[in-house]
């Protein structure tokens, strides 16, 4: 198992390297403006531009620049490790930018993840157990709504109703937990629910489907034949087998949101990592884009590894060598 994990970690590094390389190439093959111009600010002189090009290694072939990026990453820079360089916009260190944005996104994902996991599974189980009843139909109707309702619409509607009209929650924007815990929750509760809704719907349908399939298995009949209570049959035997796939996609869903919760972050003006990535793409801010992409790639690759290890842990039939 340890050898397996080690081998997977090496592969993870390869994957991350390739992702960063591709991002780099895309930015150099599709230039929509000169980065040096952006870095220099208003009305620069030709000499200033040449200096900036030289300092940013823009005058060298792209593989040399990529080499500098990799070297800088491993050795660190004046802002510490890993060295991610400076943003072209406003000369802010990328590391500092990410450190500032990351908690917003991480709190958003963590809260939403807890909500969708608990409610998604609970709704799915209820639906499966009360199959074809009114409860099941209402729950699956709700799931269809959750899957089809666009996040930006849900976000704006929820802000309008719960903040503007009812004054139940805080509005858009982010308040750090350490600054004012009550305001922190009050501002995050709507983004949590809105982001969770889509995943909750997916998880509810997945749980329902898996559980119904499991409840048709022979070993469920054996469990009943033993004289176990219906509760033990469903929860101990049915749910145990049907939650394995859910436990393994959960880390992946969380990880892909690290850079991918853009719409929620924008609608609620949370200015997290996804928002940062999209803004940086628009401003051709290569170092910031690379920083976010790198973080996202690391998260997804590690989540993948966690999911595989979790799978082996949950299902004794799966053993990696």
């Amino acid at each position: 198992m340890l050898i397996y994990i080690a081998r997977r970690l090496v592969w993870t590094l390869v994957v991350i390297f390739v992702v960063v390389l591709i991002t780099f190439v895309v930015f150099f093959k599709l230039p929509a403006g000169d980065p040096a111009l952006r870095f220099a600010g208003r009305s620069p002189t030709t000499a200033e531009l040449a200096l900036i090009r030289h300092r940013l290694h823009l005058d060298k072939p792209f593989y040399t620049e990529f080499g500098y990026f990799v070297k800088n990453f491993f050795t660190g820079d004046s802002n510490g490790w890993p060295g991610l360089g400076y943003s072209y916009e406003g000369d802010i260190p990328v590391l500092q930018e990410i450190e500032q944005r990351a908690p917003r996104t991480l709190f958003l994902i963590a809260g939403a993840g807890i909500i969708w996991l608990i409610f998604g599974v609970a709704i799915g189980v209820t639906s499966a157990v009360k199959r074809r009843s009114i409860v099941d139909r209402v729950a699956m109707g709700f799931a269809l709504f959750g899957i089809s309702a666009p996040v930006f619409w849900l976000g704006l509607m929820s802000l309008f109703i719960f903040w503007k009209e009812l004054h139940w929650t805080g509005g858009s924007g982010y308040v750090p937990l350490t600054q004012n815990p009550a305001a922190f929750f009050s501002h995050l509760i709507l983004p949590w629910i809105v982001l969770a809704l889509l995943f909750m719907a997916v998880y509810a349908r997945l749980t329902r489907g898996n559980l119904l399939e499991t409840l048709g298995e022979d070993y469920i009949r054996t469990a009943r034949a033993k004289g176990l209570s219906e509760r033990a049959v469903i929860f101990r035997h049915g749910l145990r087998a049907s939650l394995t796939p859910i436990a393994t996609i959960f880390p992946l869903d969380l990880a892909q949101l690290v850079g991918g919760a853009v719409i929620t972050e924008t609608v609620f003006n949370l200015q997290g990592l996804g928002w940062l990535a999209v803004n940086s793409v628009f401003t051709q801010d290569l170092p910031t884009v690379l920083g976010v992409v790198l973080l996202g790639a690391v998260c997804v690759a590690l989540a993948n590894l966690v999911a595989d290890i979790l799978y082996a842990f949950l299902d004794p039939r799966v053993r990696y060598a």
Binding site: E217, D218, Y219, R221, T222, A223, H237, R240, A241, T244, L314, D315, P316, R317
Partner: peptide, 10 residues
């Protein structure tokens, strides 16, 4: 079917 009648995870 003894292959399918025992719970695979216990």
């Amino acid at each position: 079917d003894p292959f399918a009648s025992l719970h695979p995870m216990y």
